[in-house]
Design a protein around this nucleic acid. Structure first.
Lengths: 230, 230
DNA sequence: CCAAAAGTGTTCATAGTACACCCATGT
DNA sequence: ACATGGGTGTACTATGAACACTTTTGG
């Protein structure tokens, strides 16, 4: 009976594509994989999959993310729908893109290998299949805007991080150099970080203090309207 | 042959829903219509339609917009995809929402009537079918952000408009009162308006000067990064 | 003549920006 | 001892925010 309502209409394959961003060595990276099936087998592509019959589009994206990272409940937001007629060369497929921000340290080489996946620097992106380059560009511009109004960037860092790390992250997002003192002044005013008594010596002899979030203060900022435009 | 690639996957109905916003009498309005078919016949709903086989999703939205306004090439941007399993009570339908900003004066009562459509104040929205209230809320928050970074608000006004009109428009978008002198000071600094020698006396005895865009200056602002956060 | 909306500048507080030197430590 | 990256404060500038009175004219 319910099928009768819309029966004259056409149906489409609907897919999700995930832009999984990580941060390492002063650069944003995206997780790409070598497509193992036709069409475009062997070409670089984003992680994706088709929406199944019993799941929502969000659930499909979440499933794909968990599949290829092994991690559940990752931070994830929708970018939008891509619906050009010939965007997929195999068949008409409408795709909804999602981006996720992850900590690259959480990825074992094994997980990556088992999916034919590799981290690729944003600055060295190859040509991807279909409209996947477009999806990444759209994500990067969304990220720039979002990062200024919500402290989402922290999803890209490990739980404990140094201020120089945080600064280079924002430099990578905004594609600009920031003044060290002004950056710290602003962070200090926000008062959302908790300084730990441990130093990280991976990147310098002197070592840099580690920080982590103060969840409560952080949530207060999010509610009251965040401004992180540096 | 191409069909073979994805043949194990499920297909879905894909629809577009259009949030058509107008501005009048100090308030934002949205175009709603009374649904003329099942399911939910007789309920209030956004303008929408199914994506047809030969058209892109954007084209479908554009078609729906032209259908119910009689105007071509309206300003239009995608809000996102809505893919919950049971969002449409008739059948599984994935919908992509678009918003458009229009000049309410361009709508003859006849066009509206012929679609069972009426303008409804945002502040007096009824319960709409499915997730359409959600779509409108999402649109309004996108609009708030976009209007601050691009001068899109002008799409809601006639070609010639007064400064008090423009101010109440931004007050409606931001849901706040603005200081007249600061508002004008900022606009003046931007230098994107052209003052005409005509006065509009519809809303006061004294009359207010009409302005229109200076397209060139306007485009310059858009390129160089716009800031209209009032 | 008066009600109702249009128009017009200045002052103050806040936030952003520019800028240079000392510190700690592993090699 | 020195090279490398970590850490700190101040002065200037620009931007946003608050604020009140005069002008015009239709009724």
């Amino acid at each position: 009976m319910s099928a009768a309502f819309y029966q004259d209409e056409v149906k489409f394959y609907v897919a999700v594509d995930c832009i999984i961003l990580g941060f390492n060595n002063k650069e944003l990276n995206v997780l790409l994989y070598k497509r193992s099936f036709e069409p475009m087998k062997g070409q670089w592509s984003l992680m994706g999959g088709f929406v199944k019959s019993g799941e929502s589009v969000d659930e499909a994206a979440s499933r794909v993310l968990t599949d290829c990272t092994g991690i559940e409940h990752l931070f994830m937001e929708q970018i939008g729908a891509y619906g050009d007629v010939s965007r997929d060369l195999g068949e008409r497929v409408i795709s909804v893109a999602y981006y996720s921000l992850v900590n690259m340290n959480d990825f074992s080489p094994e997980i990556l290998e088992s999916h034919n996946a590799t981290w690729t620097k944003i600055s060295e992106l190859p040509d991807l299949i279909f409209d996947h380059n477009q999806m990444i560009n759209d994500t990067l511009s969304v990220l720039k805007k979002k990062a200024a109004s919500r402290p989402i960037g922290f999803n890209l860092l490990p739980e404990q991080f140094t201020l120089p790390q945080l600064q280079t992250l924002y430099e990578a997002i905004y594609q600009t150099l920031l003044d060290k003192r002004n950056f710290r002044k602003k962070l200090n005013a926000m008062d959302i970080l908790e300084k730990l008594d441990i130093k990280d010596k991976k990147s310098s002899k002197r070592g840099a203090f580690l920080y982590k979030f103060n969840e409560k203060k952080y949530n207060k900022w999010v509610e009251q309207g965040f401004d992180f435009s540096l």
